[in-house]
Design a protein around this nucleic acid. Structure first.
Length: 120
RNA sequence: GAAGCAGGCCGGACGGUCGCCGUGCCGCAGUUGCGGUGCGGAGGAAAGUCGGGACUCCACAGGGCAGCGUAGCGGGUAACUCCCGUCCGCCGUGAGGCGAGGAUCAGAGCAACAGAGACGAGCCGGUUAAGUCCGGGUGAAACGGGCAAUCUCUACGCGGAGCAACACCAAAUAGGCAGACGACGACGCGGCCCGCCGAGUCUGCGGGUAGGUGGCUUGAGCGCCGCGGCAACGCGUCGCCCAGAGGAAUGACCGUCAUAGCCCGCAAGGGCCGUAACAGAAUCCCGCUUACAGGCUUGCUUCACAC
């Protein structure tokens, strides 16, 4: 069994597959509030956390900004220890995002992931 | 040299580490996969979705009406509301710019203010043989026309929906159809056989959802050169293959060098900042429109200076 993911990889195993796969995580009672977003947590497959983002157009009108947020958040998850915790994680954006907040957004995502990792 | 006009082009480069998507090869795994390695991986607008096509499915004898679109003339194109040439009108000293630029003896309609009267001819004053001639403050326009982006007429064009199109594969659940079995159940007055009904069980079939695959990137393609053409563009030789995701990859970090900006210096130069505007492919093309830090470049105009 060569299941072992590479140390810093982030492939499809760590994503949600299929339409509506987010829904169960979004309905989960475990939530962590950040400054501009909410992290939903649900128990998933052991050893492989999954990570997803729900960013409505309301938060970032332009496609570039939404892409940017996703990429930055994924990068944070990729390097984070929760990746092996076996949790389904979905970050739902709440507050509008503007372009000069990139570093703030990364810090927020890291903070949320730290809190989940610390809780267990 | 200073102002300006019209185009064309670029819109960081190189390297390293860690990742993501696609794909060729190799190895492992009876498949899904996993690992290694090579190669490819956002834009000039990918945007708005405004015109036009290709491609699918649906509809369709032929013709007309209605509706919509276009409008000097000629050309280009698969096609267009696009592009090129040219005429006319207006604007500009000029290079140039702008223009829905066919028709109002086929017909209808034309606001407000002013004015006696506004699309109909009459009215008022003077004059004459005679509606014969002259004038009428106003107003953009007053007897003669104007407006067709008001309807209309003429000519030409136009079927509808869209890749979430469409084609194929295909769980689970509910229901449909067919067949088999079928309770010590119902009916044939009772029992057995038999027939028939039958909850249910099994099998098969078809529709169909989730899901999957195809469509999906080689094309009105790109580059060089030659030829034809004032040009748009066309033809030909040779070379090239240039993203294909799918809740949606193209990212993060770090060096070096250049660019803009800022500071020091007479200068050579040094230092600071740290990649910068608009913005992220979604079936594919041709256009148009809109957004845009900074930079390169071609032709031309006017003015000034010099010879």
């Amino acid at each position: 069994m060569t299941r072992g993911a590479r140390k810093e990889g982030l492939s499809r195993r760590h994503r949600f597959a299929g339409r509506g796969a987010f829904v169960s995580a979004l309905r989960s009672p475990r939530k962590l509030r950040g400054a501009s977003s909410i992290l939903h947590v649900l128990a998933g497959r052991p050893g492989q956390s999954r990570f997803g983002l729900a960013l409505p157009k309301r938060i970032a009108r332009r496609a570039v900004d939404r892409n940017r947020m996703k990429r930055l958040a994924r990068e944070a998850f990729r390097r984070h220890a929760v990746k092996a915790a076996g949790l389904d994680l979905v970050i739902a954006g709440r507050q509008p995002f503007s372009r000069n907040e990139e570093s703030r957004w990364v810090a927020e995502v890291r903070g949320l992931l730290d809190r989940v990792a610390g809780e267990r």
